[in-house]
């Protein structure tokens, strides 16, 4: 059996990549993919811990996946709405409000 610490390390790496992606990338869709990476790193950790303890972690993962799907659906719709107004999904362009 692979020790849990390996999964914890992998999940921490995935989480960091996701966070960096959100902070550094300028394309809205890539940012969304990075958020998904962050959510999935949490899922991985849940499943890894769940193997040590009980099934509640795996149940949690199902709910997280459902919620993530809902969030992405709303997010993509919102990107389309913004794109219709601005003709761009570069988040540096999306800055008509300042102050």
């Amino acid at each position: 059996m692979v020790p849990v610490s390996y999964y914890v390390a992998l999940s921490a790496i995935l989480f960091s990549i996701g966070t960096l992606g959100v902070l550094i990338r300028r394309n809205a869709i890539v940012i969304f993919m990075s958020v998904e990476l962050m959510l999935n790193s949490a899922n991985l950790l849940f499943v890894a811990f769940s193997r040590l303890y009980d099934l509640e972690g795996q149940i949690f993962v199902f709910f997280v996946m459902t919620v993530a799907a809902a969030e992405v659906a709303v997010g993509l719709a919102m990107i389309v709405a913004v794109f219709r107004n601005k003709r761009s999904i570069d988040i540096d362009q999306i800055s008509s409000m300042k102050g």
Binding site: I31, E71, G75, A81
Partner: peptide, 17 residues
Amino acid sequence: PEAGFKYLLFGAMTTAV
């Protein structure tokens, strides 16, 4: 839409953390 989009981006990221 810009307001909704910014709210969503921030929300999605903070919820993931």
